[in-house]
Design a protein around this nucleic acid. Structure first.
Lengths: 247, 247
DNA sequence: CGGTGTCTTGAATACCATCAAGTCTTGTGG
DNA sequence: CCACAAGACTTGATGGTATTCAAGACACCG
């Protein structure tokens, strides 16, 4: 609908907290003109907004750009022909939408915006050329790639070998950790904006929405967490952590 | 039963079928001196043998080398404190043992040899330097990266959203496909060496050995496959494929 | 030869799914 | 602003898939 800020001098038409940019890969690669960083180099950029529940990337589309999340939450979703869904990962501000888009124009999975999401894209060919030219960038990029792989493997273990309660508790901690790095947690006890619906949690943990509801009310009954008004409060971190790593 | 004995003459101290080298990443990067390719460049190499059931890599060890599988089967295993195990992937001849070892000296997961395994390692620093220097290599390497990520995501979907029968059928097809690329399938109906124990299948599919046994005998009863003498025959590919992707 | 690892089979059980009904919220168009 | 529809969540009843427990057969190995 709108978007298209032209070149690097101009600030985007939405404002992004500095804490977000500070963890952004694009910012750290020094290729992004937003956030008060140095002058952007190389890749052609453009920004746009995706409304909640719309697709940021379609699974079999062809893309010439590599998008990043500036604000909002999104999910990487795989759909089966019969309607079953699995969420591979949640994307938070500062994340690359799809690292494979750097090397392959066709994504394997769909990316759905959970909240309204602000994106910024970089031209793939230019970005890749820059990466090849500067080992320093590649080094940084490989770090995010390793982190992604690591989280994928942890999810495999969760889905293969952990109970419903463990999976949900671990999901909450993973999100907490990532939001903490972004300066997106508040107060004591710790509280976060929590835009996920229970069906998102279900699709991420391989459970049904009904069972997620039961586990969450159990967590609430035990005074571990509280969820209301799209906001999650961690009342008993130690208790939840025990569930997350034990059996 | 047949094959897999160490004959010692030729260039390395064990012999590797050419078909294996042809799909090997190291061979395609032209950094490996084995297999009749061009003279090896750059990285310091060394080869060794790991007996069945021994570790190729320990999860918290520190390594200065990047190992490849020249022959034999191995598995990437994550262990939980209480003994639960999850296999992330099976490694076949020509595979990199751990791609993250290129950038990080500490692997997240353990690598176990399933059969006797012959490995060849390359010095990490040298290999990485070579990669940074030649965009061509990096391009090829990124392909294996993407493939690895893709398979991890498919496994996530399998574990999160598919039934026991679907998971096992898909595992068999995945192995078949990979072995076909390596020229490691024989005859009609298709047959492969199959060194996996049922507990390997269980750990890879997030099931118990008992249930794997039940599903496999069901597959056998339905004339889909046959397993005997560490060898698997695909009797009804169409029937098994229907199980693998439907429902 | 006992010991260990592997596989099979049956019975009982647990965990989570499915089905269903109802409440409450959110969004939308008149 | 209200009426209505759709989405989100809860709760209980019931069912199915896979686990756990257990026992026995078989092969392989030192």
């Amino acid at each position: 609908m709108k978007g298209q800020s032209t070149r690097s001098h101009e600030r985007p038409h939405w404002s992004i907290p500095e804490s977000t940019c500070r963890i952004c890969v694009a910012f750290n690669l020094n290729i992004c003109g937003v956030g008060g960083g140095a002058e952007a180099r190389g890749p052609q950029q453009s920004g746009y907004v995706v409304p909640a529940r719309h697709n940021i990337l379609r699974e079999h589309g062809l893309y010439g750009v590599v998008p990043f999340i500036c604000s909002g939450w999104a999910a990487t979703v795989v759909m089966l022909p019969d309607g079953r869904r699995q969420i591979i990962s949640f994307l938070l501000p500062g994340d690359i939408v799809s690292t494979t888009l750097l090397f392959d124009s066709q994504p394997y999975s769909r990316i759905e915006a959970i909240t309204e999401t602000h994106c910024r894209t970089f031209d793939r060919a230019e970005l890749r050329a820059l990466l090849y030219k500067e080992p320093d960038l590649l080094e940084k990029f490989s770090k995010t790639w390793i982190g992604e792989k690591r989280r994928a493997e942890e999810l495999i273990v969760d889905l293969g070998r952990r109970t419903a309660e463990e999976r949900i508790a671990r999901l909450i901690f993973n999100l907490m950790d990532r939001l903490t790095k972004r300066g997106m947690v508040r107060g004591e006890p710790v509280e976060i904006d929590f835009p996920l619906r229970q069906h998102h949690i279900a699709d991420a943990t391989g459970l049904t929405p009904v069972h997620v509801s039961k586990v969450l009310t159990e967590f609430r009954r035990d005074g571990l967490i509280n969820i209301s008004n799209r906001s999650l409060t961690l009342l008993n971190p130690a208790g939840l952590k025990r569930i997350a790593q034990m059996r």
